[in-house]
Amino acid sequence: MKFRTFAAFVAPSIVMMLIFIAFPLVTVFLNSFRITQPVVEQVEVETCTAGFLEQTCTTEIKTQPVLDAAGNQVTTTEWVGWLSYERVLGLAAMGEALAEGAWAGILNIDFWKALRFTLTFTLITLPLVIGLGLAIAIAVNNAARSLKGPVIFVSLLPFIITPVIGALSIRWLFYGDGIVTALLEQWLATDISVAANGWAIEFLMMFYRVWHVAPFAFVIFYAGLQTVNQDTLESAIIDGANRWERLKYVIVPHLMPLIIFVALIHLMDAYRAFEEVVGFSSQAYRITLQWLTYDLLTPDDAGNRAISRASASAMLTMVGIMILLIPLLRRTWRDHHGES
């Protein structure tokens, strides 16, 4: 294919990615080092009220935004260096906590709280997703042929459902006097309040994520199971391997590339966790890195968005993604050079 034809085919896609992905990345990078805010001026206002003999006048100093000729607010942009990063990382509060030796105090700072949760969340759900996906794939593979279609249909539901709605559907089973909580209360004869307990919410968020992603792992492992070499399995039987050994030494090594693939995809997606916080309304107890950026971008009560701090927190989130990406990139690189 000549370069000109190639360019013509690819151009629309590249242009869109440049405008809407590469360009915003540059602005985010720049915005994280500068703060844009409305210019305010202090004016002396004299207010007079009618009084006997003389008017009573008071003067006070008011702060008000400067407006230009068209009536828009005038804004200034200042380069502030690492200030926004310092604020997001809460360096001042962190220094205090360290000086007092109160390590736990660090986890009260939003960013570190979010980082702690996101990492625990990602690392705990990873083996569960792979284990459950593999177990379902093997169970479906053993099931009668006529059952497979309906089983795959039902299994796809948690994966296909809108993430926020999926989280909500589990929340309604547990929050308040949800039926599962009610059953647990009856069984344990205690009062349980899920919505006010950080650890219970954390558990539910992980449960939701495993429920949501396991079908994806299942479908991929199931496809991989169809290509297991039957001759190898038979030789393993002749060599006296039992069921467990066959799973461990034949099937799992065969699926290994797929397990790595699922693990990488899951790491990237779980690190970007966001919908759980919305669905479980967990912001008072547990937040994720992406939610932190989202929260800074949402207008506060005065209608201001903390763009600079949001940009800084976005850049910090990206650092993590880059670390997670390195193994995936190396794999693609190897595949490419293996092919050619």
């Binding site: 690819v10 590249i14 809407f20 360009f23 990345l25 966001f274 989202y294 995936l328």
Partner: peptide
């Protein structure tokens, strides 16, 4: 290289991009 860069773009958290769009 286009495919590799696309792979990196796929991993970006959407909030990062939205932080870039909003002021603009």
């Amino acid at each position: 290289w286009i495919l590799i860069i696309a792979l990196v773009f796929r991993a970006l958290p959407h909030s990062v991009l939205v932080a870039g769009y909003l002021p603009v």
